[in-house]
Design a protein around this nucleic acid. Structure first.
Length: 156
DNA sequence: GCCAACGTTGGC
DNA sequence: GCCAACGTTGGC
């Protein structure tokens, strides 16, 4: 089983939104590196952190499970969709997605600044300079380390 | 809202 | 195939 971190802007789709719908196709990924990870490596049962980006306090806010095999992202075929890609079509699909299933909120927001301050997480792509991946792998040890951070009191 | 750091596009 | 211009991401 693999571990992931997936970013979403809470204004577009938040952990609360996921909680209310329970399962959601994680569409709109238009980056080849992220695409390849979805298509080639994600499997049902994998665990992922839900990360809120582009918000006042960016950080990890929840836990979810990969809930489907990778499949075509049909929003790429729809001219009316926000993430329409004219170069993707059902004969030559370019983009993929998986369903994600809500597990729980983290007990508190584990903020980006906290994550950056952890020597144990220095290899996490999220905290590396200039990284813009919206989906990234998390090593097992790092995943477990982050879960222990959840138990600490929130920073001041 | 600013802007650094990327990724993509397209002319050549 | 190079690379300048442009668009996007996302922290701050």
């Amino acid at each position: 089983m693999k571990y992931w971190l997936m970013k979403s802007e809470p204004d577009a789709f938040s952990i609360d939104d996921l909680k209310s719908v329970k399962v959601e196709p994680w569409d709109g990924i238009r980056n080849y590196q992220a695409r390849n990870m979805i298509r080639d490596e994600m499997q049902p049962g994998d665990l992922a952190f839900f990360y809120h980006s582009n918000t006042k306090v960016p950080g990890i806010v929840g836990l979810m499970e990969i809930a489907s095999e990778p499949r075509f992202d049909h929003t790429a075929f729809d001219p009316a969709a926000k993430y329409f890609d004219p170069k993707s079509n059902p004969d030559k699909p370019r983009w993929y997605l998986v369903d994600v299933k809500y597990i729980r909120h983290t007990k508190r927001v584990i903020t980006l600044s906290e994550l950056k301050a952890e020597p144990a997480l220095e290899n996490l792509p999220l905290v590396r300079r200039g990284n813009r991946l919206s989906i990234m792998p998390v090593e097992k040890q790092a995943f477990e380390h982050i879960l222990t951070m959840e138990e600490r009191p929130a920073e001041a």
